[in-house]
Each structure stands twice: as C-alpha cells, then as structure tokens.
Simulated scan of single mutants.
Amino acid sequence: MNRVHDNRSEQEFEITVDGHRAVAAYQLEGDTIVFTHTLVPAEIEGRGVASKLIRSALDSARDHGLKVVPQCRFVRAYIDKHPEVQDLLA
C-alpha cells in the first residue's frame, strides 16, 4: 500500500491505492486539528485504507503537538477503538 501524504494546501491527508484516492479532510485551528470527513472510494473499501489513513494522520498530529477534534464519525470510531491515541483528543 502507498504512503499517506499530508496535502496541506488542500487540508487533506491522502493516499492513492490502485489509482483511487482516499482522503481524510481536516481544518487546522491553532493547536487543534479538526477532522471533518473521510472518503474512501468503493473500489478500495474493506482493505484497511481508511485505518491506515487515519493512523498516519493521528501520528502526524502527535508529531506536531496538535490536539484532535474528530467531527468525522470514522475518526471518532477509530479513536474509540485505539486507546493509545485517545490522549490526542482536545
């Protein structure tokens, strides 16, 4: 699977798998990153793409000292299932 890229100009973490682009959109608000939605094309669903995308995004938030607001249901569910990232919550 390809690497996750932080496309800062579009405020999206993105990954391309088999020619299909998945994104986790965000907004930076000071020292907080608000994840607004995650989009994975049907062609690559069920392959762990969204989980890899969100894990990389949360790792980046930690690396940059940001707190996380998970407006996106998928990001909220991911954080709920992974106690090791719950300290990132704003």
Rank of each mutant, 00 (worst) to 15 (best):
N2Y: 07
R3Q: 13
R3A: 13
V4Q: 02
V4T: 13
V4S: 11
V4M: 11
H5M: 11
H5Y: 15
N7R: 08
N7M: 08
R8D: 03
R8P: 02
R8T: 06
R8C: 04
S9H: 13
S9K: 11
E10F: 14
E10R: 15
Q11R: 13
F13L: 14
E14I: 09
E14D: 07
I15F: 15
I15L: 08
V17F: 15
G19Q: 10
G19D: 07
A22L: 07
V23Q: 00
V23D: 00
V23S: 02
A24Q: 06
A25E: 00
Q27R: 12
E29K: 05
E29C: 04
G30R: 10
G30Y: 05
G30P: 10
D31K: 14
V34L: 13
V34M: 11
F35Q: 02
T36H: 06
L39H: 14
P41A: 06
A42I: 09
E43A: 14
I44R: 04
E45D: 04
G46Q: 11
G46I: 15
R47T: 06
R47M: 06
R47S: 05
R47W: 15
G48L: 13
S51Y: 07
S51R: 10
K52N: 12
K52S: 03
L53Q: 01
I54K: 00
S56N: 09
A57P: 00
A57H: 01
A57R: 00
A57E: 01
D59Y: 05
D59F: 03
D59G: 02
D59T: 09
D59A: 06
D59P: 02
D59L: 08
D59S: 01
S60K: 08
S60M: 03
A61W: 02
A61Y: 05
H64Q: 14
L66A: 03
K67M: 04
Q71G: 09
V75S: 00
R76Y: 09
A77K: 12
Y78L: 08
Y78N: 08
Y78P: 06
Y78T: 10
I79G: 02
D80S: 07
P83R: 06
E84D: 15
Q86S: 07
L88C: 05
L88D: 01
L88M: 05
A90K: 12
A90E: 12
A90M: 09
